Simulated assay, not measured.
Amino acid sequence: MPRGQVLWLLCGAVALLGAPAPAAAAGQLAVAVADFDYSDTSGEEADQSAQHRDRMTIFAALLRDGLAQRDYRVVRPACPQPACTAISMAPDDLVAAARRDGARYLVYGGIRKMSTLVQWGEVQLFDVEREQLVMRRAVTFRGDTDTAFRRAADFVSETVKDAMAGR
């Protein structure tokens, strides 16, 4: 099976696994996880935009799944635009989308490929109810592989859980 098909199948499976059961969602703290932005400033000649789109889809799905495993009700903000990211939307619109979904917190951010070996990102956690930023964390990781993105998503998930637990 071609690599692209494997990525799409994996992405679909992860998204299905990360969906919380509706019956269990009633008393859970709701967290909206927006899609993450991505930019490649590495200057590499090969066009990897399709692979990066796939990895960012999987990254967000893994982040949602990681939070759902800790009894959070995870929602994906319903945005009027196809891309529901901090760059593609006005901040007030992104917060409003999270609020419409009943989320207490909003997680958003982006990743930038700086070189062949280094990815850099920023993750932010916004308290929708109090209207304040409660966490802003820089994240770096090595590699431009599925494994590197999976490990980064796991780390970000734990970081966000720790930040929410301390509130």
Rank of each mutant, 00 (worst) to 15 (best):
14 V>K: 00
26 A>G: 06
6 V>M: 07
43 G>L: 06
6 V>T: 07
24 A>S: 11
25 A>I: 00
50 A>F: 12
23 A>R: 12
16 L>N: 07
26 A>D: 08
33 V>N: 09
38 Y>F: 15
15 A>D: 13
21 A>P: 02
23 A>S: 14
29 L>F: 01
19 A>K: 12
52 H>M: 14
17 L>A: 14
55 R>H: 13
12 G>Q: 14
53 R>K: 11
6 V>W: 13
40 D>P: 10
49 S>E: 10
7 L>G: 00
19 A>Q: 14
17 L>K: 05
22 P>Y: 00
46 A>E: 15
18 G>R: 05
3 R>V: 11
52 H>C: 02
36 F>C: 07
26 A>K: 11
26 A>C: 07
23 A>D: 14
4 G>F: 01
51 Q>S: 08
34 A>F: 06
29 L>H: 05
35 D>F: 05
7 L>W: 04
40 D>F: 09
5 Q>H: 07
53 R>Q: 15
27 G>D: 13
15 A>P: 00
55 R>S: 09
14 V>L: 12
3 R>I: 09
29 L>Y: 03
47 D>M: 04
49 S>R: 12
6 V>C: 00
32 A>M: 06
2 P>L: 09
52 H>G: 02
39 S>Y: 10
48 Q>P: 00
44 E>K: 03
10 L>G: 02
43 G>H: 08
13 A>D: 07
31 V>I: 13
22 P>Q: 08
43 G>F: 02
33 V>M: 12
32 A>P: 07
39 S>W: 10
54 D>G: 09
20 P>S: 03
55 R>N: 10
23 A>W: 10
14 V>C: 03
9 L>Q: 15
49 S>I: 04
9 L>C: 01
11 C>Y: 15
27 G>Y: 05
26 A>W: 09
54 D>E: 14
24 A>H: 05
30 A>T: 15
19 A>G: 08
10 L>H: 06
43 G>R: 04
15 A>I: 02
7 L>M: 07
39 S>V: 15
39 S>T: 15
41 T>W: 05
43 G>Y: 03
38 Y>W: 15
15 A>M: 08
45 E>M: 11
14 V>F: 02
20 P>I: 01
44 E>S: 07
6 V>Q: 15
5 Q>T: 05
51 Q>F: 14
52 H>L: 11
33 V>R: 10
11 C>S: 12
34 A>K: 10
17 L>N: 02
50 A>W: 07
22 P>I: 02
38 Y>V: 11
8 W>Y: 04
43 G>A: 04
42 S>I: 01
6 V>G: 01
19 A>R: 14
17 L>P: 00
6 V>I: 11
30 A>G: 03
21 A>G: 06
